[in-house]
């Protein structure tokens, strides 16, 4: 039953890449009322970054208001996909429409080009166990996930990236986060995307008390973190810098968003001598740090 102040928002089909998802984040002001319902009827597809960010958006709302956002009119294919990715298991959204069990996507070997959404806890001990289990699962499914890029060293590169980014969650964000991986096709392009995101304090706040650091914008700080061995906790660090080195070797892309800024690094463009680092500041504020690592092949 609708309450007097319940509002239904029909979400636009902006879940196809991290840049389009800005359109959803920028609707932030409209989410500030209780009893909100999202109509997903226009959403045709959700890639992993948008899916995990959407989950964080729901979690932020739940924490602030104590209420779950309701999701209605979910297209069957999207509903199947979200169920397959364990999106609803996180118990963040209220989903009144039940998907018929017969329609659940089978968890066969062929449908394992993904790692379902995993929560990365913010406590070191628990987190280490989860990271080890995620990496073990990734190794099992690597031949399917990285089918178009497969070699022993690419798998090892990805293991390093998963390890470094997941540890950043419990070391720096002061909150738990989520990981998801999916390989999918758009047109003739094959895309493997690893997403590791949290809704913690964000990169700018984590470097707040760090002396001898000079930067103006958050995106500038993000670029420093990717290109120099800096750390908010120790005299120097390795994590993001190491991730960047590996993604460069793989000629992949990094999309990083924190607070009101984003940084896009496209290493495949670097080789061609084109501009490959793109800064954006003054975006709608979204708490935490969200990172997407992408490999693509045609």
């Amino acid at each position: 039953m609708k309450t007097a102040d319940e509002k239904i928002l029909v979400l636009p089909d902006r879940f196809r890449d991290p840049f389009l998802f800005e359109g959803i984040i920028s609707m932030g002001g409209e989410f500030q009322r209780t009893g909100i319902t999202f109509d997903l009827s226009r959403v045709g597809f959700m890639e992993p970054y948008s899916m995990v960010s959407f989950l964080l958006l729901g979690r932020n709302y739940l924490r602030e208001s104590g209420e779950k956002i309701k999701l209605v009119n979910i297209p069957v294919k999207l509903h199947q996909y979200l169920a397959r990715m364990d999106f609803f298991e996180k118990d963040i959204f209220e989903v009144p429409e039940i998907l018929n069990e017969k329609l659940f996507l089978k968890r066969t070997a062929e449908s394992r080009r993904l790692i379902e959404i995993k929560e990365i806890p913010n406590k070191e001990k628990k987190s280490i166990k989860v990271i080890a289990s995620v990496i073990a699962l990734f190794r099992k499914r690597a031949s399917l996930i990285l089918k178009y890029w497969m070699s022993e060293s690419v798998v090892d590169y990805f293991v390093t990236v998963i390890s470094e980014l997941c540890q950043n969650i419990f070391e720096h964000s002061l909150d738990s986060g989520y990981l998801a991986i999916q390989t999918y096709n758009t047109g003739r392009e094959n895309i493997a995307r690893l997403v590791i995101s949290d809704s913690g304090i964000g990169i700018r706040k984590s470097f707040e008390n760090k002396e001898n650091m000079s930067f103006e914008t958050t995106s500038e700080l993000m670029e420093m973190a990717l290109t120099m061995p800096i750390s908010s906790k120790r005299p120097y660090g390795y994590g993001l810098c190491q991730v960047s080195t590996i993604v460069e070797r793989l000629k992949g892309g990094i999309y990083m968003r924190s607070g009101d800024a984003s940084l896009t690094v496209l290493y495949n463009k670097k080789e061609r001598g084109a501009s490959y680092i793109f800064h954006k500041n003054g975006l709608e504020y979204f708490s935490g740090t969200q990172i997407s690592i992408t490999l693509s092949s045609k």
């Binding site: 070191e124 001990k125 280490i128 990271i131 080890a132 990496i135 190794r139 540890q167």
Partner: peptide, 10 residues
């Protein structure tokens, strides 16, 4: 956990 040795506590 093998074959990967990761994290500070390990």
């Amino acid at each position: 956990e093998l074959p990967d040795l990761i994290t500070r506590p390990v």
